[in-house]
Design a protein around this nucleic acid. Structure first.
Length: 185
DNA sequence: CCGCTGATAATCT
DNA sequence: GATTATCAGCGGA
């Protein structure tokens, strides 16, 4: 079981540290290869930027819980609530599939291996995450974390798909990975 | 490889 | 009524 304190560090540091860690949901998942930090303070792109609403309630709760929201009316996106201030979270954008890959392909339909979990909406579909997981404690089942012993090479760059505060270099990718939604640069 | 477009609903103005 | 932390499918180069 992961230490609860793992999530209680500065949210940008947390986003960087999550890259390289393996996350499983009911035994299905893989290595996190792409994340983005949303900071709440001085970050207009964060859902929490205008305070607590029914949707963003979980973002203002304790670190180490899951924030799930619907994107563009079609997709689910999953975030790790964390950081040292309320309203911060890390969007999980891509993983390298390693565990129960066959089950992920069943859920995703006819797609190539590279696109199985490359993108926030694809990732949640492959892992079977939806609104029923909103607010869940990430240190308990069905979530499993496998933290590598070796350090991970991580590249930082600007976030994707937003229109406000686009300059912050708060997107992190695993160096050299072909399983990201888009390469930095 | 690249760019365009429609789908679809909660949230915000 | 407009915007949105997106994706798949299509056509063209």
């Amino acid at each position: 079981m992961i230490d609860r304190a793992f999530f209680g560090v500065d949210v940008v540091s947390l986003a960087r540290r999550l890259v390289g860690i393996t996350l499983l949901v009911d035994g299905v998942g893989g290595v996190i290869v792409e994340t983005e930090a949303y900071h709440r303070y001085d970050d207009a792109a964060a859902h929490s930027a205008r305070g607590v609403t029914p949707r963003t309630r979980v973002m203002f709760g304790p670190p180490g819980h899951l924030y799930v929201y619907r994107s563009y009316g079609l997709h689910w996106c999953m975030n790790v609530v964390g950081g040292t201030l309320p309203g911060c979270a890390v969007l999980l954008r891509a993983i390298q599939p390693t565990h129960a890959v066959g089950q992920m392909h069943e859920r995703r339909g006819k797609v190539t291996s590279r696109l199985l979990c490359a993108g926030p909406g694809r990732l949640t579909q492959a892992l079977g995450v939806n609104i029923s997981h909103n607010g869940a404690d990430l240190s308990l089942p069905p979530f499993t974390w496998i933290i590598p012993h070796r350090a991970t090479a991580v590249i930082a760059g600007p976030r994707i798909g937003i229109t406000k505060d686009v300059h912050h270099p708060w997107r992190f990718t695993l160096a050299g990975s072909s399983f990201v939604s888009r390469r930095v640069g």
